[in-house]
Design a binder for these strands. Structure first.
Lengths: 343, 343
DNA sequence: CTGAAAGCGCTTACAG
DNA sequence: CTGAAAGCGCTTACAG
């Protein structure tokens, strides 16, 4: 059974299988897909033939014919950041379980790269896109091309678009309240952006903790930083060098927390005796250092899985209203927080 | 210019563009792809029409017709491990730059999942696959289907298959030699596998350092551990509790190093006074803890980029002999290593 | 129960 | 300079 395909060195197609099994392509297709009738004996013969030829159907061609898509596009900011990597991991596992392949791209923070990746996804006819958006345009663009979009971690068009997020406001309020409750008054917030829902809501939660405690919040303690460790370290060094330095710092994410940690080391400040530290986002190093760093822990893998679930919900109910799924977080209480020395 | 596509709510095809621009599909195609002749005025009209219709060509259909593939498959062990995430990041960036989309899957250590993912890649007709192999079968399987394979980090068929790795032997010898050179005699190797080239070569390097120094190696100091932090921590706790405990531990990867670090903390052992520690693989936490951990640093992003380069080399030179690319590593000397107390 | 024909969205020799 | 026709690999009503 030497087929032409084998001789020519090209991949066998269904035509090769059909010829070798001496049936038509129609029958071969029905035998292999299991859709439509075919005599049991014939089906067996076709399947065996496919097996021996090493035939693997071209699912791209199949999908084209069936006018369906079995892949999803995933677009995150930076795979080297463990938060996004975990997210991708959750999405990957969950989507493969449903028989969908994952196309992954990262935009390394560039709005242009983000849009370019979105265009690629449209051209690839993915069934949907899960992304951590950098701009409002990208979701709009994909929506215009009728591609379901799930925003994860942050949202641009709150309530207009499906999203999977955590309750940033509540979590920020919770950890800030704890600090205030143990006697801290000068609690600084180190933050790198307030344009996204993440930053905005964390700021709001921080402020409402002061309000709830009846303590006036000092806006000078809301410190803006660049987004990388070096920038945060420098800003934190300045903040912690002032005579009336805060007694506690709430870092709005794990990168900023790393900057604060390093700055405290640089200045010889002891944690928590001289300064308490809380991080939004947990990270592996926070349990390695002494003392451990108290952190708001998001389960990024679960976030990814929930995004996939929402995506399929959307695909099955195209007309249902936009939904925002909120996942809970946990606060990992560690040694970096304690009552202030002066209290 | 209300097209049928717009009215029906389906995506515009080249047929819609052609009709709206009042040309044939052939001409529309030539105008949009730039291949083949078309009158300048006509080309402009077609392009404008496509623009206003929001036409995005289906690249899957195009690739089917052209019998080419513009995607690569990537298969790693676990995206949540920063080494693999960095690898994927390098591959992603480099492949998009060449106009290829990346399909990503992770096998979470399961040989069955690995093979399943490989089958999906064949069905998807990827141009090639880059993977961190778990078994010899997967590369064989892909090879049988004429899909170029690049093995990264570890190899199964050394010299028979393209690969991008680091010189594990040389690096392991280098760090072990340094320990011996500063007076250590009882240097343990903590290792989780010796079936892959990674583990095997690190062991060989460790041993040849002893040989080169003329010091007899004690095989009882080669300690086998499970692959996760908990297992390593337990094994290390046993090792460090013995009366004749080693004066230095060389952990064969970053997960094992974390286990050793935690075990030392558990036992109240000071690093480096009581025990020196070296890790193969750097990790963020190693610069956060005090003292920092001396590590062999592999640039995983660069590894990924090199794998993509090798993949395109292979695609362009299908018959060229298998090539193993070896990337250099650096040794990050930090505070966790010092001469032994008794020296 | 099976096969001939059409067609998914695209490109490309080829004829005019 | 342009369009009709064929065909990539597949599936699916439909006729027999």
């Amino acid at each position: 059974m030497k087929t032409e395909a084998a001789t020519a060195g090209r991949r066998p197609t269904i035509k090769d299988v059909a010829e070798a099994a001496e049936v038509s392509r129609s029958t071969a297709s029905r035998a292999l897909t299991g859709r439509g009738y075919v005599a049991p004996a014939v089906r067996e013969r076709v399947r065996r033939t496919a097996q021996t030829l090493g035939y693997v159907p071209d699912v791209l061609a199949r999908n084209l014919r069936q006018q369906v898509s079995r892949s999803i596009g995933v677009l995150v900011s930076d795979l080297r950041n463990s938060f996004y990597a975990d997210l991708a991991s959750g999405i990957s596992r969950q989507s493969r379980q449903r028989g969908y392949a994952m196309m992954l791209a990262d935009d390394h923070g560039s709005v242009a790269a983000e849009l370019e990746a979105a265009e690629t996804f449209v051209a690839l006819r993915v069934a949907g896109v899960i992304l951590t958006p950098l701009s409002a345009e990208v979701s709009e663009y994909l929506g215009r091309h009728q591609i379901p979009v799930i925003e994860v971690d942050r949202q641009f068009a709150e309530g207009k678009q499906d999203a999977v997020v955590v309750d940033n406001r509540a979590a920020a309020e919770r950890v800030t309240s704890r600090l205030l409750g143990t006697g801290h008054r000068r609690v600084a917030l180190l933050i790198d952006e307030m344009d996204w829902t993440t930053g905005r809501d964390r700021l709001v939660g921080y402020r409402s903790a002061f309000h709830a405690a009846g303590i006036p919040a000092d806006d000078a303690l809301v410190i803006r930083s660049g987004w990388d460790v070096g920038a945060a370290q420098e800003v934190a060094r300045g903040l912690l060098s002032t005579p009336d330095r805060p007694t506690a710092v709430f870092a709005a994410n794990n990168v900023l927390a790393e900057g604060v940690w390093r700055a405290a080391q640089d200045l010889g400040l002891r944690i928590p005796e001289d300064i308490s530290l809380v991080s939004f986002d947990d990270a592996p190093w926070m349990t390695m250092v002494r003392p451990g760093v108290t952190a708001v822990a998001q389960d990024a893998v679960a976030l990814g899985e929930a995004a996939v679930a929402q995506m399929f919900h959307r695909i099955e109910n195209p007309a249902s209203p936009a939904r925002t799924v909120m996942l809970s977080v946990s606060v990992e209480q560690r040694g970096s927080t304690a009552p202030p020395a002066t209290a």
